[in-house]
Write a protein that binds this DNA or RNA. Structure first.
Lengths: 218, 218
DNA sequence: TTAAAAATTTAGACGAATCTAAATAATTGT
DNA sequence: ACAATTATTTAGATTCGTCTAAATTTTTAA
């Protein structure tokens, strides 16, 4: 019942990749975790022996429901701490991810649930990602990448799906945050960059930036 | 510059034993840390190689100023988190120690300093122990064990120097807390237990309990 | 359809932190 | 002062998580 930091990190990473890419390969996971593929194989054996994932050599792996459950509790802790850091301690949204990477491994359930209550049971972390509740359930917001928003359609930014400090700083500079209203005025056929109207000003957003921004039509 | 959880735990334990007993032996440290003496020897070699303590085989060891500095930052983190858990999350004082044992190893300095500011730079943790500031300095309260308080001398409880949940629960039952006013009415010559007047009621305190309670005369 | 490339796994090693059992040093009591 | 006891250290092993290099399997492309 107690899992190591490493095990938790692997489970969390697999969960995220499974969500985003649908499938999880040894190489992709190694890249994501900055380890070597052979380390992945080693850990897959360990986790499958513990029935946290199903692993067939050369054929990939996928979390069992127990594995998913653990991944979700780690993600819950991570996002609750991010919210705490941002809301209570005044950290910037570009800083919280890094610190939460450490805090997320403190597994005391009472701590996490009391923190949740103290924060007022927040539903979303500072990047707009949903925070699972103590049963692992979380709010689902239908949202689409800014790259797919129709021209002249009003929308608000619901989340940014990339925790890199570089991206978040770039967005800070442009005064783009969760909840900011946005409208796409034009999309370039050449480089896929787009002209957006934000806070009554016209901005150019490169495709690389836009595809990390998710919005909800209003 | 980054120390492992283990290294931090050893340094902290040595610091505490050095304070309390003056001297630190391999066996005492092993007992304190619930490890085997041979593990202590191993770690002493490692820490002295890093210049965190001076170690001479068979002659004991003592922290260098760098070792003390690190121990104090760990203690600072521990007590700040204890204060947070008690003050903000509503944990009982008999529960905070355990949880803080995990939180204390998160070493991000900005986190700790922001937490400190958020809490209003508290000077004492829930057990009355002083919290070192970011430079390692802490308030010093002259206090004495309740076992040495003069008869009929009014005093207030300043700290409890034993984090065991059992002791703290016993004190909870008797409604004894930091800040509680106390007066010793009688001391038994037979078992060293004492009759104390607390909150206008007479209580019997065993020597085992009394020696863990520190007070300040008023 | 098969040879080259890419992905994955295996084999063997290493550092960290611990342990047990044996050896050695220090202390104590007579 | 020295034998017995106690404290400490050494030797050697184990588990965890990682690595490199080599082997193997799968995929791809000519």
């Amino acid at each position: 019942m107690p899992y190591t930091f490493s095990e938790e990190n692997y489970l969390k990473a697999i969960f995220h990749l499974q969500e985003k890419e649908g499938t999880v390969s040894t190489n992709a996971l190694a890249l994501h975790l900055s380890t070597r593929p052979s380390s992945i194989t080693d850990m897959m054996k360990k986790l499958s022996a513990k029935n946290l994932l199903v692993y067939k050599p050369y054929y990939g792996f996928s979390l069992t429901s127990e594995g998913k459950k653990i991944a979700l509790t780690v993600i819950r802790r991570h996002r609750l701490w991010e919210y705490f850091l941002s809301e209570k301690l005044g950290f910037g949204w570009d800083e919280v991810h890094q610190v939460a990477e450490e805090l997320e491994h403190i597994s005391n359930k009472k701590l996490v649930d009391k923190l949740d209550a103290y924060l007022g049971f927040p539903q979303f972390d500072p990047h707009g990602d949903p925070i699972p509740d103590s049963r692992g359930k979380f709010a689902h917001v239908e949202h689409l990448p800014l790259t797919e928003l129709a021209i002249n359609q009003q929308a608000i930014i619901t989340s940014v799906v990339n925790q890199s400090a570089e991206l978040l700083e770039a967005l800070n500079e442009k005064k783009i945050a969760i909840g900011t209203q946005v409208e796409v005025k034009k999309r370039s056929g050449f480089d896929l960059s787009l002209q957006a109207r934000i806070r009554n000003r016209n901005l150019t957003l490169t495709e690389q930036i836009a595809k990390n921004i998710y919005v909800k039509k209003i």
